[in-house]
Amino acid sequence: MHDEPTPPGLGKRGSTFDDLAAFLQQPDPGGYPVQAVRECVCRSCGGRSFEVAVMEEENAARRTCLTCGQHEFIADSEEYWDDDTELECYCACPCGSEEFAAAVGYSLREDGDVRWVFVGLRCLTCGGLGIYEDWKISYGPSAFLLDRA
């Protein structure tokens, strides 16, 4: 059994990318607004269903396509990912499923650089929506991260 982070947003449901994008763009009191949302699509086969692992200590996320098995890092996660540690956790919905549609929400600075990254997942079993990981981007230029959902 995987060690599973619990997502905020329990009880919210959706069935499409648009539902997940709207969820990511809901204002969070005291948080940064999300101005851009990108759907996660496998660069190898075009798949849109994933198993997602996070490294909470490092604020990093990696998705694995359920169609072809290809691993891809989200945003700048590759720089912080450590395959040699046991800090990897697989995301799981409260319903028990570990299969998700995924999207990345980006909070942007005035100059267009990325300020904050939010990894949003929609459970493919029950439609539950949640933000499973987020982290600050404290360097620039960082607008290139918009292409790394």
Rank of each mutant, 00 (worst) to 15 (best):
L20Y: 08
S97M: 07
G128A: 14
S97E: 12
W135C: 06
G69T: 02
C45R: 11
A75F: 12
D84E: 15
G9P: 04
C123V: 06
E39W: 07
S15V: 04
A60G: 09
D82I: 00
W116T: 00
A36G: 00
E58C: 10
P29C: 04
E51T: 01
G30T: 01
E57R: 00
G127N: 11
S77R: 03
G11T: 02
C68L: 06
V41A: 11
G140S: 15
Q70R: 10
N59T: 01
K12L: 12
E39C: 04
A36W: 14
L20E: 05
V41H: 09
E98V: 01
C126T: 00
G30R: 13
G9W: 13
Y90V: 02
D76C: 11
F73A: 10
C126E: 09
R148I: 04
I131A: 05
E99Y: 05
E110W: 10
E39N: 07
R13A: 03
E56Q: 03
S107R: 02
F17C: 03
D84M: 10
I137G: 07
G31V: 05
G140F: 15
E51I: 00
I131T: 07
W135S: 03
S44G: 05
Q35T: 04
R13G: 00
A22L: 08
W81T: 00
Q70A: 13
F50N: 09
L121E: 06
T16E: 10
D83Q: 14
I131P: 01
A103G: 08
A101Y: 03
D113S: 13
T85V: 09
K12F: 08
I131R: 12
D18L: 11
G127R: 12
G120C: 05
Q25E: 09
Y80K: 08
D147A: 14
C68K: 03
S107P: 00
E51V: 01
L146S: 08
L129D: 08
C126Y: 08
S142I: 06
E58L: 14
G120P: 03
A149D: 13
A102R: 02
D18H: 07
A143T: 07
L20R: 00
R122D: 06
A36K: 15
P141V: 03
A149K: 02
F118W: 15
T125P: 01
D19F: 10
S97K: 01
A143G: 08
E57C: 07
R115S: 06
E4I: 05
G69V: 02
A101I: 00
L108W: 01
G112H: 12
E51M: 08
G120I: 02
E86F: 00
L146A: 09
G127T: 05
A21N: 03
I137N: 10
G96E: 15
D18K: 08
A101M: 15
W135H: 12
E98S: 12
T16F: 11
R43Y: 14
V119S: 06
V52N: 09
D111P: 03
V37G: 07
L129T: 01
C123R: 06
L108A: 04
V104P: 11
F17Q: 04
E51D: 13
I74P: 02
D19V: 01
T85P: 01
